[in-house]
Design a protein around this nucleic acid. Sequence first.
DNA 1: TTGTATGCGTTATCAA
DNA 2: TTGATAACGCATACAA
Lengths: 347, 347
Amino acid sequence: MPDHSQKQDVTIYDIAEALGVSPSTVSRSLKEHPSISKETIRKVRKQAKKMGYRSNIFAQNLRRQKTNIIGVIVPRLNSHFMSSAISGMEKVANKNHYKIIISQSHEQAVNEASNVEMMLEQRVDGLIVSLAYNTMDLHHFDAITEQHTPLIFFDRVADLPNSTNVVIDNYQAAYKMTNHLIDEGCSRIVHITGNTSRNVYSGRLKGYKEALLEHQLSYDSDLVFINDLREEDGEQVARKILEMDQLPDAVFASNDVCAVSCMALLQEHGIEIPRDIAIAGFNNDPISRFVKPKITTVDYDGERVGEVVAQNLINHLEGDDHISITNTIVLNSDLIIRDSSRKQDAG
Amino acid sequence: MPDHSQKQDVTIYDIAEALGVSPSTVSRSLKEHPSISKETIRKVRKQAKKMGYRSNIFAQNLRRQKTNIIGVIVPRLNSHFMSSAISGMEKVANKNHYKIIISQSHEQAVNEASNVEMMLEQRVDGLIVSLAYNTMDLHHFDAITEQHTPLIFFDRVADLPNSTNVVIDNYQAAYKMTNHLIDEGCSRIVHITGNTSRNVYSGRLKGYKEALLEHQLSYDSDLVFINDLREEDGEQVARKILEMDQLPDAVFASNDVCAVSCMALLQEHGIEIPRDIAIAGFNNDPISRFVKPKITTVDYDGERVGEVVAQNLINHLEGDDHISITNTIVLNSDLIIRDSSRKQDAG
DNA sequence: TTGTATGCGTTATCAA
DNA sequence: TTGATAACGCATACAA
């Protein structure tokens, strides 16, 4: 057993003894309680520094029943959107003296549930969640809401009372994107998206359908692909496209990675973008700018989402806010038209 | 003030009372202490579940002086390498019932120091760090080592006694890459890298130099660019390249984002890759595969790095390991030769 | 302005 | 096999 035991910590008792005062005086001095004289405060602080005192946070937590820790559960960490979102949360949390504990569900409801349990055990002050791909039943959040632990969902949100959702208008974004493609003369538009039990994907699918209908274009379910939106999924759709009797004239994917991998495979088979097929993605992942042609996408600023989510939660925790009864915050998201569209004016 | 107060928690006293046994019996039953009868254990567990008991972790921590929390400090979260590394750490931590608390230094030593202080306050069981760009003085880690809190650096590591480093052989990787470019007939090779106070960048620069020297190629400092390796830095180098009297025949950048942005701007100015200039990056960021041509790079698997780092730390914490006196773990990293090199055989 | 005493929920030691 | 009791370090109600 390695020896990392001797964290012989200095306590307020040690300081009290050294100074010949009581522990409570030390405790109060350390947080500049108004009833303590300036002189005492000065002395205590000096002694504390001298002895290398560091407040024991467990004892504090135990007394105050508060941790200043925010729990974050996400499907996975290593996508551009998610890591940016986490970055934004960390920034805001740090500024407000909160810490964040992170866990991944790896897109599995069962992991999500055990992560929630872990967060509960940690007694997080609040919880931020983006749902796993296959989460249907939401009962694993019951204990959270029962204890009135503030709960905020973002991106992939839930329909749960007493929780807040931070989203963009996925319907509108997809509606605008599809309209844009139609305006460019596309009429056979492939849509690649994820599990439509998730708000983000159902919203986008709906926007896509609506735009078609408004232009008297028939909705063809053979042109809609539901998958996990990973690199290989984009490629697989590309292969299916190449086998179609009649080629589509556009592909609109629900994320950029999928759009880009689909495009790459199409290009390898001699399809010219955007002449033969126009391409559109979602998220404004850096990758969307680096491919050729640059792909049209929807600006979805993870960093900002993360900031808003964290700030909202902290406001709530600090009491600057009311109890939310299923409150929803909708952030902006704009089309970014690029070379993979047939015209390049602003949308 | 919103009402998230009534976390009227069930304690072992409540269970004890309900069952007519002592709190110690409950405590022991809950952790299946060998001296407690099966029957009692069964009863206690049942009652605990019935009453919705959840152990208070502060009290536990307070008693045991242990948190099962690992602190992680990184320059920034939202790069592919870093978010993958964190993902790997989270995976291993989760499996071993550890939690991770994350903070960003935003590449500033001053933030790094305050993050360390925060981790100390949280009483993390161990600390994982990748250094900020401009960290020179390492005294902000003194308190960590003094308490014998295990400390592991990865990627951007330090030369500190009683800490472990997890790295790849940056010298070798850059040496091989430069050799590869030379083998392809390149002789004026631009190298873009970061602050050479950081091991990763000094190692790579050294490998680059060494390869040149071994081939009787003179080292030209005008071909070496030290910057922050961001998207805009790659573009700026591209502009400088375009102004050169004699064009280089290769660019070797210390990360893929920088390599790719440099390449894109060169291409916009009619340079053909790899005919006019070959391109090489570092990290095997997905972006390196999606650009055209795909760029040659160094495989640097963040997920694996994260796993190794976390596993090593946990082994140490669990006592399966000795106290490390400046131990170094070197992970594998291989060249990935792609279209942006002039030949495409394996390196 | 400061001190005393108690409790936060657990675990570990000792005794029964 | 179980129980009583004393910590762990801090914060606060009450007393002085």
